[in-house]
Computed example of a mutant assay.
Amino acid sequence: MTMIKDVCVHLDGTAEDDGRLDHGAMIADLFGAHLVGVYTNKIGVMMFPATDFGGASAEILTEMIADSRRAGDGVEKRLRARCATLPTPMDFRRIDEADYLLGWAVANLARSTDLFVMSRPWGPGKAKRWPDLVESALFDGGRAVYLVPPESKTARMPKTILVGWRDSREATRVLTEALPFLKRASSVILAMVDEHGAPDRFKDVPAAGIVRHLDRHGVKAELRRVSGWTHASDGLLNEARLCGADLLVMGGYGHSRFREWIMGGNSRAILTECTLPVLMAH
């Protein structure tokens, strides 16, 4: 049976650390899990021509790295003081790496945890919050991510959970990862947003089967057909508002290639607009 015993929380020294820490502590307390804060300190580097690498260039690069580490020391001190105020004991890890190596380090950590708490990677306009790290944890780490919206001020145990269900590998995978939450919820709703393509007779059979499967796990789920929406993401977000969901569960559709995150339009929209936490797995 899926259990949550290790939870990592991404920290970066910004104001959004508070929201991620509160959600991470809530989850760790809920499941009696081990909590680890992971501070990623991006080391500034510059590219120099091969013929120029030496002498003054090497000194500049060395000083840039030293400056990044010194700045990270101050952030780490503040973060450790903040972590000490949490009701849940937590370990602290720091990663000092250049941008292109941070993703590898985070994916490596994700493989030895059950859940990685991070920020929703996009926002209105060009707002971004470490999308490359979310990509690495989700696609390369192989575990679930719990994405906190910037609007979140108070973490609370999810009582009403909305699952974006479709007959796919990704949806099945995230449903398994979400089972610990689903078992503790008061209301679980499986929302199927009608999409063009497959005949109705092929949509209903797997959906009925997954409801029976959840029932055998002790989860009473309500199946809802959501119609009338051009984009599935709009239908899911509207359904989340209607049912007062505390958590949205959905598969992460897309793939990672050459450090570019190619996401399906619905996943990208959810991770730009959703104002409640999203549990996602690929």
Results as ranks from 00 to 15, higher is better:
A84P: 00
M3Q: 15
D22P: 00
A191H: 06
R70I: 12
E59H: 11
L115Q: 04
I189K: 07
I161N: 00
K153F: 05
G228T: 06
F139T: 02
D200F: 14
K126C: 09
A98K: 15
P89I: 07
Y100Q: 13
M26W: 10
L30H: 14
R93Y: 08
G13H: 02
D167W: 01
G265H: 06
V226T: 12
C83M: 15
A144W: 05
F116L: 02
L11D: 09
D140H: 13
I65A: 10
I43K: 06
G141A: 06
L242W: 00
A178N: 06
I60P: 04
G24S: 02
V106P: 03
C243A: 14
P149T: 11
G19Y: 01
F92K: 05
H255A: 09
I262D: 07
F116C: 05
C8L: 08
D194C: 06
D29H: 12
R225T: 14
G13T: 05
R20N: 01
A144D: 09
N266G: 13
A81T: 12
R173G: 12
A110H: 02
K159D: 04
M46T: 14
I43P: 08
V174Y: 00
D52V: 09
T172V: 12
L133R: 04
R94N: 11
R94V: 15
E135V: 00
V9D: 03
G13W: 02
C274F: 00
L109S: 01
T14P: 00
L236C: 10
R173W: 09
V249L: 10
L223N: 09
S227W: 11
G164Y: 01
K77C: 07
H34S: 12
S168D: 08
E135N: 14
W165I: 00
L223E: 07
T14G: 10
E260S: 09
F48C: 12
P180G: 04
G164K: 02
L248Y: 04
T272E: 13
L35F: 08
V188A: 01
L61N: 12
K77Y: 08
F139G: 06
V205W: 09
M46G: 11
K203D: 02
M263A: 08
S68P: 04
V45N: 07
A221H: 02
D132P: 05
A33H: 10
I4N: 07
A84W: 06
L11C: 03
E273F: 10
N266Y: 07
S119F: 03
A155M: 07
R257P: 01
V205C: 05
A198H: 10
R156N: 10
F181R: 01
Y100K: 13
L242Y: 06
I161H: 02
F53H: 12
P199H: 11
K128A: 14
P121M: 13
A127V: 15
H196K: 14
E170F: 04
R111V: 02
R216I: 05
G141K: 04
V9Q: 05
R78N: 13
L101K: 14
E63A: 15
Y146I: 04
D96N: 15
H213W: 11
A105H: 02
A71V: 10
G264N: 02
G19T: 04
L279C: 04
D18H: 11
T62H: 15
A33L: 08
R201M: 10
L279N: 03
A25V: 13
Y100V: 14
L109Q: 03
G19D: 01
Y100N: 13
G164C: 08
P158H: 00
T230M: 13
P199F: 10
F48S: 12
V188Y: 01
